[in-house]
Design a protein around this nucleic acid. Sequence first.
DNA 1: CGTGCGTGTTACCGTTGGTAACACACGTAG
DNA 2: CTACGTGTGTTACCAACGGTAACACGCACG
Lengths: 216, 216
Amino acid sequence: MAFEDIRQTVPGENDAPAPHRGRNVRGRDPQRRKAILDAADRVIQREGHEASMLAIATEAGISKPILYRHFGDKGGLYQALARRHVDPLIERIRAELHQHTDFEIRARATVGAYLSMISQNLNLYRFLMDRATSEDVRTRSDLGLMVRRLGEELADLLLIENRIQGRLRAQIAAHAVVGMVQAAGEWWLEHPEVGEDEIIEDLTAAVVGAIRGSVD
Amino acid sequence: MAFEDIRQTVPGENDAPAPHRGRNVRGRDPQRRKAILDAADRVIQREGHEASMLAIATEAGISKPILYRHFGDKGGLYQALARRHVDPLIERIRAELHQHTDFEIRARATVGAYLSMISQNLNLYRFLMDRATSEDVRTRSDLGLMVRRLGEELADLLLIENRIQGRLRAQIAAHAVVGMVQAAGEWWLEHPEVGEDEIIEDLTAAVVGAIRGSVD
DNA sequence: CGTGCGTGTTACCGTTGGTAACACACGTAG
DNA sequence: CTACGTGTGTTACCAACGGTAACACGCACG
């Protein structure tokens, strides 16, 4: 056909393809996957939170279809990225929660972990948060769901420790607190002149107050 | 060169009433505008929060370009919709804030106003909230900005009433509280089994606690 | 009359998410 | 050695979206 589809193939640096080492190297999939996710991270960090699938594929040195073969659709990629970045955060928060015993210290550690996390990876955080609320919230499990999971976990904790009476009340308080930290964190990202210590301190105070206030 | 000045016209409030008016006194612009916004509301309510411009234009009985002539771009439409639906909410909240004097009662009234508002217009709320965080947050002024405005206002109030010392601390607490109500509200939308009174009560307690806790 | 302007349309563009269909290498069965 | 299947990759396409250009009609005025 006379049509030449000159897409942005960007032949630079992705040549010398397929060293074809050996043949069916067994554990190639995980490596590939990790490399793609690395590329996605890079693209997002560089181009902001509206990275296209093509850009990610190109950065990874592959073409779109194989990106889709790995992650299904964009939601799958989001999910994988979310898992990759948010799971450690949740893990860390969980550790902080279980490590200390004093209530306020735990709150401070948790808030600090969250804030330092999002401030280190601003674009990525925005990228994940972006899709967290859009789409069909209940089918896709991305950052929105993780945040909710964190809320549920906090609710359980509050309930188990008898800090708040009543499952419902604990859930409300927990999700309220999570949203609180999230919103204040977002505000902070746009006010870099505020020191990290300061916002941690104030936010902690608010969190503690909210939970104390929910005791009734 | 005659098409140059359409861009940011967004005839929001500086509506110079028909310059060059003289004939064609059909002052249809305001009517048209209202009709289009009505159509947008309908489409959003029916099709969820991912309504396309084409769908909205069709529903309004017009074609895309005139929709664009009215609102510039999709951001303009969002903005107009946000103004239309959020301004009354903010107005109502502001009224509640200034009407009562008792702290807790004011909090309860405000929380109640917000919750009843979002529960009445679920899809629309999602539609607005969706774009609130995405895109370039600082250029477009939609619901995100309104929420922030509300936060600033609350911060001022807290400061003026000497309820919290220090502008920074007041701002942090205010935005934290706003995010808290927002997150808890979203949670509530997905748990309709929870009664409105109940969540209002609990959320109010958390809000009051957060503010009290921020006093230090 | 015809010129200018408001109002409307159709038909297009560029980008994006997503996919179908093809191409090549290679180990293996016959 | 040949034929085939399978895994891996590609190009080229599609549909939908936001947004725009170019054209077409109607109507008041000089």
